[in-house]
């Protein structure tokens, strides 16, 4: 209990620095996530056009997700060196995977007959994607975005090792210097941040998923 109170006091006395670190942390998470969405969603859409590309993405995507985050972060260093850009790049790489696989799965899971009906009604492939497949896949895509955002909050801690800044600074130097109050002042807000992000995005996920819970299709 005493440790928690000391941590709280540390946070209050260094509130200005805390805000800067929190801001850095959120900045890395947000930039990496937005860039991941911007790349992964279109790439997945293109991939669903070809059976081979689709299989490749799902297989490689699933395998790549077993690679530890620290391994990715560590590998970025020899490639790009140290700094904020490398940190964001590392977070971005790991954020890509859940969005990629979920977008492909979401589009694939759209009822075949729904797509057939759309094709028979005279929609072009692009119109089917835009009006039918993407809207129906949104909940699954969003679940991927939620997963990757929460992972990002954690990866951003590790990004400190390659010069990313953020809340990792307090936790990691707190551990190194046996400064328990500083460590807790960095760890607890980060844990809460991840939990809040998850709950918030879960709420948004339910919101975008309304009207999607039943696939209208074969009733027999």
């Amino acid at each position: 209990m005493g440790a928690l109170i000391e941590g709280w006091q540390y946070l209050l006395t260094n509130f200005g620095e805390f805000l800067t670190l929190l801001q850095e942390h959120l900045f890395m998470v947000a930039v990496a996530e937005l860039a991941a969405i911007a790349v992964a969603v279109p790439a997945a859409i293109v991939a669903t056009r070809s059976d081979r590309a689709k299989k490749w993405i799902l297989n490689v995507g699933n395998v790549a997700q077993t690679i530890p985050t620290l391994a990715i972060i560590a590998l970025v260093y020899p490639l790009l060196g140290i700094g904020l850009k490398s940190a964001i790049f590392g977070i971005w790489v790991y954020a890509l995977l859940p969005i990629l696989t979920n977008t492909v799965t979401g589009i694939e899971n759209v009822d075949r007959e729904t797509v057939n009906a759309a094709r028979g009604m005279g929609m072009t492939d692009w119109e089917i994607m835009k009006r039918i497949q993407l809207p129906l896949a949104i909940p699954v895509i969003f679940a991927g975005i939620r997963t990757s955002s929460v992972i990002n909050v954690g990866t951003a801690y590790l990004a400190f090792f390659i010069g990313g800044g953020g809340l990792g600074l307090w936790v990691i130097s707190g551990i190194q210097l046996f400064n328990t109050p500083q460590m807790l002042a960095g760890a607890i807000p980060g844990a809460l941040l991840a939990i809040c992000a998850d709950l918030l995005l879960a709420g948004v996920e339910r919101y975008v998923g309304r009207g999607h819970d039943v696939q209208v299709g074969v009733s027999a």
């Binding site: 009822d111 007959e113 005279g122 072009t124 129906l136 299709g217 074969v218």
Partner: peptide
């Protein structure tokens, strides 16, 4: 192809209504 399909009504057993 596309114009033709738009000019012809099409109904299938599975209906294929758009759930969203």
């Amino acid at each position: 192809r596309i114009d033709l399909r738009r000019d012809i009504g099409y109904v299938i057993q599975e209906i294929g209504l758009f759930g969203h």
